[in-house]
Every structure is written in C-alpha cells, then in structure tokens.
C-alpha cells in the first residue's frame, strides 16, 4: 500500500480550471517536487493537500486513511509557506512551541522538543529573537522547525527558498534535504526552479496548465521530456518542428525533435569527418563555467552549451564551425 494516494484531484474557480485529473502515489520518506511555471496550479494543489482550499473532486489518502474532507488541524500535515508566515508577535521559541501547545503537551515536553528543533535547524542563540530581527534564511529555518516539531506525516514546502539569495538558497537546500533524509519524512516541494527540483527530488512531477504532464526521476525528466512543454521548461531544449528536422537532419517526423544544448558537439570548420553539419556562430554568451552559443545551421537556429575550458577555445560571432549531433541524442516528442 502506498503511503500517500492522490486520485482524481480537480479544482476550478468560476469556470477557470486550476488543475484537473491529478493522480499520484508516494512512498514513505519520498521527496517529490511539483515543478512548473507560475500559474500552473502547483501552489493551489499544495494548499488543497493541506486542506486550506477545498477540492471540487478527488480523493486523498494517507496511510490508507481518507482525509479528503478532514480539516487542516486533523491531517497531520506540516507546511512551510513562501512568506514563512511566522507569527510576528512571538519569539523564535514561541513560534516553534505554538503547535506543541495546541496539542496541550506538558511545558517540560514542549521545552525539550523546542530545544531539539532549534538544534536541528542550527538556530541556537536565537531563541528569544522576534522574526523581524532575523535574516531571510533564519526565518526560513524557524518556519521549517515549527513545521517539523509537531512531527507531521507529510511536509509541504511552498517555494520556501524563492525569496533568498543564491548562496543561502544552495546551503538551505542541502540542509532541507539532510533533515528530510534524517527524519525519513515524506515531502512535497513546490518550485518553479528546475535546478532546485533536480538536486532535491527522488521524483519530479512536472505540471503544465493544471495537469501533471510527466512524473519520473530527475534523470528521466531531464533527459527524456514527455512533451514539448516539459522540454521547454527543462534545460533549454532545442525544439525542431517537422520542417526544421528535414532541413537540418533530413529526417521526416510528425511531432517535434528535442535536442539538449549540451549534446551538440563543435568541431573546427575544416574538419571533414562524415556526418558533420556546417554552422555559423551568431552570438555567444559567457555563463561562467559554460559558454552558450547561438548558431545557425542550414537555416535552423540552435543553442549549444559548451564547457568553458580555455579562453583560447572561445568562438567569436561569425566564426564558422562544424556540428555533430549523435542519433541517440535526438528525441521525438509529442507536441
């Protein structure tokens, strides 16, 4: 039996479908990410799972128990909000203790659990601080500790890292993952950041226009996009229509061909190896360890990502090159 079963979830507001036909199962301790662009319905789906928004249709079971209509207080679900939603009138300790006090636990038990939670998120020394006096990263950790201390069955994280700068985001991402692994906590993480999804998740559910369009491991979703929407969202794929495929590769296909920018290899313009395609560099962009080239080959625009090894290897606009695309790197996908 699956730990979490979601079947037939649907929600609409005044005729506008937010999401529909949402089905998935989760194993205990699994870390799943709902990934998709803004407005695809992922945050509303999370709020429905938490019981904060009512469903139009569907069933939600946790450990076999049907909690579709249970109030948020009775679901055993913890949630970290995008804005953290820390209680501004309470100190760090009081915020973390709030859920325990609602369970009417003895003061000694509350104090010991709060101390453990503070240690878990490495906030020692900040017990008496108010949220207004904390940095974004510290607030995020208080929100995490507050959700974890009540020992929820499922943890929901609604874009908890989006308001933080890149360095803190990376370190907190790892911290969240460590805590999740240590507690073996079933977690659903919502984000629009593919890097976050790829680094954190056991499985990724890609959402587009209110539907889960693909679910699978990070590797599968990144290398084998199920359709055009996933390919566009993951990894800056080159998407070639039927006419472009014929022009560039001489292939007759009905749908689209997806080619990852990092699988296209560049060779010198005078290389005569059979199967190479002549191209011209139109524009280059240095992204640190990667150089992104926009090239034109047989009238088709392509994007190519190369490792930035040596300054001498960098190509300039107008340079002529040869391209190689291995047949196994071509993916035909549904529109």
């Amino acid at each position: 039996m699956s730990f979490v079963e979601v079947s037939g979830f649907a929600k609409s507001y005044g005729g506008n479908t937010v999401f529909e036909d949402i089905n998935f199962v989760l194993a205990r301790g699994e870390f799943v990410t709902l990934l998709g662009p803004s407005g695809c319905g992922k945050s509303t789906l999370l709020r429905c799972l938490a019981g904060l928004v009512s469903l139009d249709a569907g069933q939600f079971r946790v450990e076999g128990e049907d909690i579709t209509y249970a109030v948020p207080q009775k679901r055993g679900i913890g949630m970290v909000f995008q804005s953290y939603a820390l209680f501004p009138n309470m100190t760090v300790s009081q915020n973390i203790a709030f859920g325990l006090k609602m369970q009417k636990l003895a003061a000694k038990v509350v104090a010991s659990k709060v101390a453990e939670a503070i240690e878990l998120v490495e906030l020692g020394g900040k017990e008496r601080a108010y949220p207004a006096a904390l940095s974004g990263g510290q607030r995020q950790r208080v929100a995490l500790a507050r959700s974890l201390v009540v020992e929820p069955r499922i943890l929901l994280l609604d874009e908890p890292l989006s308001a933080l700068d890149a360095r803190i985001r990376r370190s907190l991402r790892q911290q969240i993952l460590d805590i999740q692994r240590r507690l073996d906590l079933t977690t659903i993480f919502v984000t629009h950041d593919q890097e976050e999804a790829l680094t954190l998740s056991d499985r990724i559910f890609v959402m587009d226009r209110g539907r889960i369009v693909q679910q699978g491991s990070a590797e599968t979703v990144y290398t084998r996009p199920a359709n055009e929407a996933v390919a566009r969202f993951m990894g800056n794929y080159n998407l070639l229509g039927p006419q472009e495929s014929r022009l560039l590769l001489g292939l007759d296909i009905d749908g689209h061909l997806a080619i990852r920018p990092e699988v296209i290899r560049l060779f010198a313009a005078d290389d005569v190896t059979p199967g190479l395609i002549p191209a011209t560099v139109m524009h280059s962009q240095l992204l640190g360890n990667v150089v992104r080239y926009q090239v034109e080959a047989k009238g088709v625009a392509l994007q190519i990502d190369c490792l930035n090894r040596r300054a001498a290897d960098l190509l300039s606009d107008g340079n002529r090159v040869m391209l190689h695309i291995a047949p196994e790197d071509l993916q035909e996908i549904a529109p």
Partner: peptide, 21 residues
Amino acid sequence: RELVDAAHLLGASTPRAFWAV
C-alpha cells in the same frame, strides 16, 4: 491569510488563531 492558515496547520482553531496570532 497565511498566518491563520499556518496556525490552522499547527492545530489552532480559527478563534484561537485570531486571538493568539
């Protein structure tokens, strides 16, 4: 909205969330 929602998920009723938060 988010403060009351957070309080609900931590086990507080709406009147309790209103009063305490």
